[in-house]
Amino acid sequence: MNDRPSMLAQPLRAPSAARIAVYVLLLVLGAVVGAAGALVQSGWFPGGLLLALLGAAGLFLGAARATGGRGGAVAGAAGWMVSVVLLTASRPEGDFVFAAGAGSYLFLLGGMAVAVMCATLAQGRQPDGPAVRLGK
């Protein structure tokens, strides 16, 4: 048997400055992808919507793989969500980015669904060592 304690029994460690910087970068990148997707999805309706959702999915899955856990996908999704929600608000002048149409709602709801799927399906941290399976 492995004499190392379980991951759950180990004390919490403070994240390094590099890890925090990666998460902040993913948050900003998520905001950029959300703003770009908001502009593209309305410009070229059927293809732009698909391109915007595929770009968001690529960011979320790539962030999860790059960080080795679900936190990367969540950081990218949080940046995406903040930028999209801020762009849905109308300004005092009456300007807005999102029109009240099917494409805008599909982008909002589809992006949220993609974020949840990518964060859920991302590989979590796996225990290391030779005895990671019971009975071996």
Rank of each mutant, 00 (worst) to 15 (best):
S104I: 15
L87R: 15
L61T: 09
A21L: 10
A122M: 02
L54K: 02
R19P: 07
D128W: 09
N2V: 08
L109W: 09
A18P: 04
P46H: 03
G124M: 08
A56V: 01
R70K: 11
A14V: 09
V32H: 07
Y23P: 00
S90R: 14
L134Q: 12
A102P: 12
R70L: 00
A113L: 05
G34C: 04
G37L: 12
D3Q: 13
N2W: 09
N2F: 04
F45D: 13
M112I: 06
T120S: 11
L49V: 11
G110I: 07
G68E: 08
P15A: 10
D95W: 14
A102F: 12
V28R: 07
G79S: 09
M112Y: 05
V82N: 01
R70W: 05
Y23C: 04
Q10D: 12
S83Q: 07
Q41M: 14
A57C: 07
L87H: 06
G30R: 06
A113E: 06
L108P: 06
A77Y: 03
G62Y: 00
G68Q: 05
L27Q: 06
G34V: 05
L12I: 12
M117N: 01
T67N: 08
A35R: 06
G71I: 06
V33F: 05
Q10C: 11
R91A: 15
V116T: 02
L134Y: 15
L25G: 14
L109P: 04
G76C: 03
V24T: 12
W80A: 08
R70F: 00
G55T: 07
A102D: 15
G68L: 09
L134C: 14
A119D: 04
R13P: 03
G111N: 09
V85K: 08
Y105R: 13
Y105D: 14
V74P: 02
A64P: 00
R125C: 13
L59T: 10
M112C: 07
M1S: 08
L53R: 06
V114R: 00
G34M: 09
V132Q: 15
G111F: 01
L25C: 02
G129Q: 13
L50I: 13
G124I: 07
V82C: 08
A14N: 10
A113S: 09
G34W: 10
L12Q: 03
L39P: 03
A14Q: 10
Y105T: 15
L87P: 08
A113F: 10
P92G: 15
M1E: 08
R91I: 06
F60R: 00
A38K: 11
D3M: 13
L8F: 13
A56L: 01
A21N: 05
T88C: 10
V28D: 02
